[in-house]
Amino acid sequence: MHFFFVNMLILFLLSPFISYALDDENCLLCHKYRTLSRIDEKGKSRIYYINDSLFHSSVHGRVKCSECHSGITKIPHEENTKVNCLNECHITEPTEDKRFSHKNVEDAIMNSVHNNKYPLLRNANSDFFPKCTDCHNNPLFKPIQIFKDITDEGQSPKALARCNLCHKDTKFIKYFYNHVSHRLHASKNNKEIVRMCERCHANNEMLSKHKLKNAIATYKDTFHGKAAEFDYKGSPDCIDCHVKENESAHSIRSYKDPNSSIYSKDRWKTCAKTGCHPDAKPAIGGVRMHVVINKDLYPYEYYTALGFTALTLGAYFPLAILLILELIREIFPNIKRRK
């Protein structure tokens, strides 16, 4: 009898974690199949597969399917049940005991250039603004690896051993470790951030709609872009310059906005961040980072680039042609022009 009660007590205590880990809604009965898919009416592929292992290695790994897919209430599922990322989910924010939601992210977006009510826009058509999934897929945990040895899930057994001393539920410990250590560093590396931004900022159609220039191409021309391309640790990506220090990555504002990190008067402060150019003076803010070679927009840069191109190619090509002709003469020493 005692044994029964002890078991029940253990099950009761562990139940929150067990229920998150298991697919207790049994969605994977169907969604575990890689090819559960179709072509939709518009001709796009729709994939309904959930990679269980990757899902459980993600920041949403403890969220039940129905918390996000709240429009789905029956089998067969209703049509057009879009996910609202602002749904409150079961996870409780421990310091306030409130149910978690992405409402704060929405607030940040509403103060950023990425919403159609922002005053400094060139095109305010709501269809041309990003939705959550335009920039984000499910973030995968990137736990910090402090010690040399790590488990298959990227955790350090030595660090886990410290947690184990007081906390007994391994699943909870691993999740907590992943969650906290993932948040202690950038969740996307430079290349991933550039890849995210280029979906719109290197997309000709989007650029045309918003009357913008290709910011990704001009970024890649700079030392910053080259450093990121070669995986140089600490190289700046879009977020580093376009978000004010200690603000949410969602708070990107126009360069005309006095609150922006790249507002002309304060731009140098962004360059002078501790990890970047700490000794920089206000003059650094005058360096143009996204230079489009365009005579009407930037005449000085245009003629400098023209001069550089003409000089380099003008010096190199004649030299190369002369050398090639000389080498041809080496191959055919007796060749003569017909008289």
């Binding site: 890689r34 592929s45 994939i47 597969y49 959930i50 990679n51 292992s53 990757l54 899902f55 993600s58 996910v83 939705k131 999934t133 335009d134 984000h136 897929n137 499910n138 995968l140 979906r199």
Partner: peptide
């Protein structure tokens, strides 16, 4: 690279 697809498909 699946545009606008939230879940990772992996393999």
């Amino acid at each position: 690279d699946l545009e606008n697809h939230f879940h990772h498909v992996g393999n």
